[in-house]
Design a binder for these strands. Structure first.
Lengths: 342, 342
DNA sequence: TGATTTAATTGAACCGGTTCAAATTAGAGG
DNA sequence: CCTCTAATTTGAACCGGTTCAATTAAATCA
């Protein structure tokens, strides 16, 4: 194990000078710097992260924690949405040398323990949160600690939180308008799990949009899903069993939309003709689906990149200057899973 | 910032004793331990990771690095396969307190730099590698450093590397047999990118299987893909343009199979009747595809979990006792994208 | 050339834990 | 009650960097 003192000895300088070279301080003479650099090169020296971290208080690592709302097994499917987010963050971090550390934790008491360990134990420089709950204990905790973090999803309990969100209400409005224009009057709605904040925001959008286009909401056509294909499938069967089934259904993510389409197809219905389906997210496979899915498009990977950038500025402490909140307007990508009612 | 000395003072003991309590050493009297624990509780003390790491040499973090073979933009799609792997590792790590740190790096000189920083700078306790190349500089480096790592994919340059792999040759064999039994004689083959080790292994499986079922390989029906939908689509068009097109095609991952199916469908062909398509991976969406994809199933998330477990034992140093190499037999999941030739 | 200012360099102290030889205390035995 | 051994506890040294006041070297000026 080569240390900074080995380098200092070889270069014939003090450790302080080596440290200055490492941190590209300007107060080292060029000639000296070069001598040190070649010593570093010769020994293939790399500073120990922990030692550096101990007094700079920086880890060059940011964290994300996925909370498993429902205990899952390895059998269950992962959500491409979250993974895309990770991917976006990680891609944005290329070249910065910053790593993204990821934990999965069951919901419950262990959750806040983990956050305490990360924050108080200085394991990461900042955190990216997602899947915000109504009053989110994680956010409350991070605020009391004054720890750098950003959130994917609005948090309006206060106005000190930095977040980026997609305007879900607007997205749902686009979907409703589209279906109404096609002539649909009986529109089903498969909502996100209620514990998530966005469920309420999107519901408000749904209510407002339905009123705007002059349609009444039939409570029998609205139900709650949990973002899995399975729940989309069940939801669709449930709605189609109803005496007055909907001619179109809005699913709050693409996975549920896929499940819903599968259910319709299993009953011999042609999606886009006999029944229309709209999704939300526009995950990569949506456009390859059969038929291609009409869906509200949110640029997940770009959002990951934005979150990374925002967190960087929060960590650097210049989050007052830049845009600290952003509401992204999603777009509706019309494909062939929607059409005029039969 | 509360330190171990604050705790010691409050509990009226020395720092050494507090440290012993933290590491649940047996040589602390029960009564003392309790006094310390309540002091810890009272101060909500959490040891600083860096300080601990500095002399234990442990970070409680493992790493994965994705190398971008081709510079991609945020537009490009992420591979659900890799993300599933991450997901499997992360899920296996639940409750261990171990975090998974993820970096994305362009291929090239920066790559080995990053590995040096991680290893020599003691940023992680171990690494999980994937997408092995024929003579892999990363593996060679890690071996010279004697650093704990495990590999998804065989590495046979030596016999000191711990790996878990799927028997790709066997998987391809299953696919060939299946198609031959259905009566196909002209079988197309869309291979993985040649820089990856598994491309060769699977090709050997293809050759052997074709010989076994008594079919000749037509070089015009074999081409190289790059694992994207796009390359599957192009590949299929290319093969169908041939004067004697294949009646079935084996794609080396599901994404390429999806692209291939799309191309066939765009030409008005019915997949499973006019042309058969087989995939590889069995990503979650394969069975929801239209038509559902016949594919070689590899349990990606379980493999992630196994890799995590194996790495744990390598780090602990007891990798000599347990099974350090595993070749997983994949299964063929027959769905409706394959059928008798027209 | 000598005095003064400015640029470079030094190295001890510190970051917050763990370790372990040495000191202290408790318990057992006579 | 005293001695001896085992069980606890102590605290200074150490892990490998960074920091910064103090020192030394170089540059500038009269």
């Amino acid at each position: 194990m080569t240390t900074i003192r080995d380098v200092a000895k070889l270069a014939g300088v003090s450790v302080g000078t080596v440290s200055n070279v490492l941190n590209s301080s300007s107060l080292v003479r060029t000639e000296t710097r070069e001598r040190v650099l070649s010593a570093i090169e010769a020994l293939n020296y790399h500073p120990t992260a922990a030692a550096r971290s101990l007094n700079t208080q920086l880890t060059y690592t940011i964290g994300m924690v996925r909370t498993e709302l429902r205990p899952s097994t390895l059998q269950s499917e992962s959500d491409p949405f979250i993974l895309d987010l990770i991917d976006g963050v990680s891609t944005a971090a290329i070249g910065t040398g910053i790593g993204l550390t990821f934990w999965t934790i069951p919901v419950g008491s262990q959750e806040i323990d983990l956050y305490e360990r990360l924050v108080l134990g200085r394991q990461v420089d900042g955190l990216i949160l997602f899947a915000v709950r109504d009053t989110d204990p994680r956010i409350e905790f991070l605020k009391t600690q004054n720890f750098p973090f950003v959130v994917f999803g609005r948090y309006e309990q206060d106005d000190t939180t930095n977040w980026i969100d997609v305007d879900g209400a607007h997205g749902i409005t686009l979907a409703v308008r589209h279906l109404a224009e096609l002539g649909h009057t009986r529109i089903g709605y498969l909502s996100p799990p209620r514990e998530q904040r966005l469920a309420h925001l999107r519901w408000e959008g749904f209510e407002a949009a339905m009123a705007e286009v002059g349609l009444k909401i039939d409570p029998a056509l609205t139900l709650e899903g949990d973002f899995t294909e399975h729940s989309g499938q069940l939801g669709m069967h449930y709605l189609l069993d109803y005496s007055q089934p909907p001619t179109a259904i809005i699913c709050n993510n693409d996975r549920m939309a896929f499940g819903a389409m599968r259910a319709a197809q299993a009953r011999g219905l042609k999606v886009g003709r006999d029944v229309s389906v709209v999704g939300f997210d526009d995950i990569p496979l949506a456009r390859y689906w059969h038929p291609p899915l009409t869906t509200v498009s949110q640029p997940t990977r770009e959002i990951g990149a934005m979150l990374f950038g925002l967190l960087q500025s929060v960590i650097a402490g210049d989050d007052t200057t830049s845009e600290t909140r952003q509401l992204i307007k999603p777009e509706l990508h019309v494909r062939s899973s929607t059409g005029k009612p039969a």
